[in-house]
Design a binder for these strands. Structure first.
Lengths: 230, 230
DNA sequence: GCAATAGTGTCTTTGAGACAGTATTGA
DNA sequence: TCAATACTGTCTCAAAGACACTATTGC
């Protein structure tokens, strides 16, 4: 029965987001091969049936191979499929969203793929395939989830203060949040903990308590994004 | 580059839910072909590159061809993918959730496929592939969305009373809901409207106002499920 | 002391649930 | 008139936001 139907292209794409100067940016790379060789696009690639254990695994591999980045948060976004999105024919892209702290990018080893470029999601260049819609859906998902979850902590570095975390929420949501209710919410979500005796010094004002992710929410590898407060 | 990789099976599966005697039921059919020929499973099939315009379109076609049902609500759920879920090899299933009123099933023409069987989601038989997880995720999605949206209206017939709609919500959510806040919420969602002068007669009590979906929320065909109060 | 930001106590406002009342039917 | 359910007005309670106050630093 499978022979009745022409081969369908099966790929994964990754929308990797980070916060630069208070604005969400997405990682783009110049494509190494046709179609659209040399054009800026989302990192993506074919599923490797020999090595990938599932779609998230494939997305994590593609991200690692092309950019050297291992994201602490990786979640399936949706399938984008149809006859027109890829000039080669009917294709399926299993799109994923990943989050990383800008700070963590400084430790990334030399990438195997093209030099990554960060573009603000509010001013994207023209993108091939349906990558513009994919990015839009990813941003929408992150904004929606940030309203009730602790997702934005994955945009912070290892150590952060609550005022910093609040600024991250405000940047993602695009609106100010109430300080008191923000702290109440973060407290009851229970995903971060104060680092005993550690404070952010430097300013001409009272130093802020440093926090970190609780152990149960730290991931060296990719996670599904479900049921983890994300 | 595509030749580097073995063919990946690309299918769609549909979790069609309805409410029977106050309990969520899922439509299953005996499979017509191997693998698992003759075993009860979700209706599913290959993507047809020649005719399907996207994944939801493929799901609607599969559902229509195999069961004769055209659902007023169809939404992409997630991709289930991996080497172990199908004995034929690495496979991708683009799973969808669909909702239909039990009442609407009576008007369904003779199905081209096997006789559909409705099984309660709380007591599923053993299912092939990863269909059990797919059903579980579908039910979880419907429950979650029902908490804040008008999704359950698609489990009602064309005309319904608010007490009937409330009972549907309670069946889906598995818990009683407050009558006053329920009516406030339905009112502000703005997806239903009273049918002027029409009441549900019959009981030895005050008749209830009949309601229907507002025109903007009625769909003869499948919809994406996003941004429509669903 | 003063400016600046961190952190907290508490009042107000808003929305959800509880409860009890009125409305309308068939018997 | 009574039982039964539809519908509605209003009180109570809990969560969220507003505001103001204290805390701690560098200058």
């Amino acid at each position: 029965m499978s022979a009745d139907h022409p081969t369908i292209l099966c790929t994964v794409d990754v929308v990797l987001l980070t916060l630069i100067d208070g604005a969400l940016h997405v990682l783009l790379q110049k494509r190494a091969a046709d179609p659209f060789s040399g054009v800026l696009a989302l990192p993506g690639g074919y599923v490797h049936a020999q090595e990938d254990r599932d779609a998230a695994d494939a997305a994590a591999r593609v991200l690692r191979e092309k950019t050297g980045i291992v994201s602490p948060y990786l979640e399936q976004l949706a399938c984008f499929a149809g006859p027109g999105r890829d000039p080669r024919g009917w294709s399926v892209s299993i799109a994923h969203v990943a989050l990383v702290a800008e700070e963590a990018l400084r430790a990334v080893p030399a990438a195997a793929g093209a030099e990554p470029q960060w573009k603000p999601v509010a001013r994207l260049p023209v993108l091939p395939f349906d990558h513009r819609q994919i990015v839009a859906r990813a941003v929408e998902r992150v904004r929606t989830k940030s309203q009730y979850s602790s997702l934005p902590v994955y945009l912070c570095g290892e150590r952060f203060t609550l005022p910093q975390l609040q600024a991250v929420y405000e940047a993602v949501l695009g609106e100010p949040v109430n300080k008191v209710s923000f702290r109440r919410k973060i407290d009851e979500l229970g995903v971060v903990e104060p680092i005993e005796g550690e404070f952010e010094a430097g300013g001409a004002h009272r130093p802020a308590q440093l926090y970190r992710l609780r152990r149960a929410f730290r991931h060296a590898l990719s996670v599904s994004g479900r049921g983890l407060g994300g």
